[in-house]
C-alpha cells in the first residue's frame, strides 16, 4: 500500500518510490513509540506516508520552479496521449497531471480508504475533501477520456 501510494505520487518512478517507501518505514520505525490508539495502525502509517511524500518535495532542491508550477492548477487541456496503450502508464501519466496533494488523494481513493479517514489523514474537513474529489474526478475524466 505504501509503495503504491509513493509510485502514484512520484508518477511511476520506481527507484524514487523505493527510496521514499524506505523513508516511510524508517519514519514508522522511529515514531513507533509515539503511536497512540486514537487511529488504526493503517491510518497512522498512511498519515506518515502522506507527510513523508509532502516532505520529499521540500528536499528536492533542484526542482524549485517545477514544484511551484506543479502545485498551481494544471491547464484543463492536458490529455493523455491516445496511443498510450499500457493502462498503468496511462494512469500514472494522468496522475502526473494532478497536483501533489491531488495525487495523494487519488492514491488513497484507489486504495479504498474511506473519505472520513482520508480527511483525518490530511487534517481537512470532509466537505473540503468532497470538493477536491469532485475536481479530481473531472480532471481525470478529461485526462483519460475513454475511462
Amino acid at each position: 500500500m505504501v509503495f503504491q501510494l509513493c509510485m502514484g505520487f512520484l508518477k511511476g518512478d520506481n527507484d524514487q518510490a523505493e527510496d521514499l517507501t524506505q523513508e516511510v518505514f524508517i519514519q514508522v520505525w522511529n515514531n513507533l513509540g509515539t503511536f497512540r490508539q486514537d487511529s488504526t495502525p493503517k491510518t497512522w502509517i498512511y498519515r506518515i506516508s502522506v507527510n513523508t511524500c509532502l516532505n520529499h518535495l521540500k528536499k528536492e532542491k533542484l526542482k524549485s520552479e517545477k514544484i511551484s508550477m506543479a502545485i498551481r492548477e494544471q491547464p484543463d487541456t492536458v490529455e493523455i496521449s491516445s496511443n498510450e496503450t499500457d493502462p498503468i502508464k496511462a494512469l500514472y501519466t494522468a496522475m502526473a497531471a494532478l497536483s501533489e496533494v491531488d495525487r495523494l488523494i487519488t492514491g488513497m481513493l484507489l486504495e479504498e480508504i474511506p473519505n472520513a479517514e482520508i480527511a483525518s489523514i490530511l487534517g481537512i474537513n470532509e466537505g473540503n475533501l468532497r470538493v477536491k474529489i469532485h475536481r479530481i474526478k473531472i480532471r481525470l475524466k478529461k485526462l483519460i477520456p475513454n475511462d
Partner: peptide
C-alpha cells in the same frame, strides 16, 4: 469504491499484485 471509476481501481489493484516488496 464509488468515488473513482472502476477501471482505474482495477488498474490500481493489478499494479498492487505485481509489486514485489522493495526492500527487506
Amino acid at each position: 469504491m464509488t468515488e473513482l471509476n472502476k477501471n482505474l481501481k482495477a488498474i490500481w489493484q493489478d499494479l498492487g499484485t505485481s509489486i514485489a516488496p522493495p526492500t527487506s
